[in-house]
Amino acid sequence: MPTTFYVNTNPLFSTDKIQICKKCISDHIGSKESNGYEDRIKSVLAIMDKPFIYDAWASSDKDWSKYIPQISSLSHYKGKTFSDSVFNSTPEYSASDDLNEYSEAQVTLNDDEKNKYVSFWGKGYEIDDYLYLENEYETLLSSYECDSYAQEMLFQEIAHEKLSIRKAREANKPTEKLLKTLQELLGSSNIKPVQETGANATEQATFGTLIKKYENERPVPEPDPMWADVDGIKKYVQIWFLGHLCRMLGINNEYAQMYEDEISKYKVDAPEYVEDDDAVNS
């Protein structure tokens, strides 16, 4: 993926984007099971000047990839900073709330947000559907490389397909065809588990194996003609190092002569003036 960044809302920074990419932030935060996970979340939010809202955090399954889209997108969090953080559960929301249990009375979108979601995801979805799609899309962007518009479209379709599977399961409907389509989309995006395993194996290969792979798949291009002859490098050293050194030390040998012959190509002789005979006689 082209390297992506979060929008900057910290007035201490003059840039439009936080100057730490999403992947680097995700790598720094680490896994949910790691020690200090929540503390690192809070330190990152402090840098971004975004609030830590405990109930929203709990409803996001305490998952950074699910929490940050809510805090960044939903209207009732706009304008809030890290100083507005709530670190304990409040009666306003239950910590057991899940994203799909929000109702329009709890979560509202302003016109700009609605237009943004409808433009990107299409019409006909509930608010929690849009949030789910946005979460899945952000997770894909932060987890895999996305370096083209085609890859973005595939990630978008994967999010759609996961939502369809989710709704089918909630309605106790069969999901075989939907899962098959999802597998095809994952394959087209080159992020199926078997493909990831192959990529990891390449990363863990020995240096010699990698060199062989690069030589076979991405060979070194032909050198510039002036550098194609290896002996030309030898001659270069003989003239400009040995020849010049001998010339400085007053040693007359073949290297000094090679240097004189080469340097003569770049010399300019002063013009000789011949006086006119008439001018002399006068």
Rank of each mutant, 00 (worst) to 15 (best):
L99V: 10
K173M: 05
P91Q: 06
P174D: 14
V118T: 14
E138V: 04
Q183W: 02
D112T: 06
E134M: 12
Y93F: 09
E145C: 14
Y117M: 05
N172H: 06
I127V: 05
Y132W: 03
G124E: 09
L133D: 00
A159W: 09
D97K: 03
R169F: 05
L182T: 01
D112M: 05
E161L: 13
E145R: 11
A159S: 13
Y117A: 15
R169T: 13
A159D: 10
Y149A: 06
C146A: 09
C146Y: 05
K180H: 02
L185Y: 01
E101P: 11
D129C: 02
K167H: 06
N100M: 09
N135G: 10
L131W: 01
A95M: 11
S164A: 15
N115A: 08
S119M: 07
D97W: 08
S94R: 00
W121S: 11
L182R: 04
A105K: 10
Y125I: 13
D128Y: 11
E126P: 05
E184Y: 05
E176N: 02
R166T: 14
D129N: 09
P174V: 06
L178H: 03
L154K: 03
Q183C: 11
L99I: 10
S103D: 10
P174W: 12
K180W: 06
G124P: 04
Y130I: 09
Y130W: 10
S148D: 08
E126I: 01
Y130M: 13
S148T: 14
E104T: 05
L182P: 01
K123P: 15
Y117G: 04
E101K: 10
Y93D: 14
L163N: 10
Y144Q: 02
E113R: 07
S103W: 05
T108P: 00
Y117S: 13
Y117T: 11
R166Q: 07
L131D: 07
A150E: 10
W121F: 15
L131K: 08
A168E: 01
K123E: 15
K173V: 02
A159L: 07
Y125C: 12
L131H: 03
L131S: 10
F155Y: 04
A95T: 15
A171W: 10
D128C: 08
M153R: 08
E152I: 05
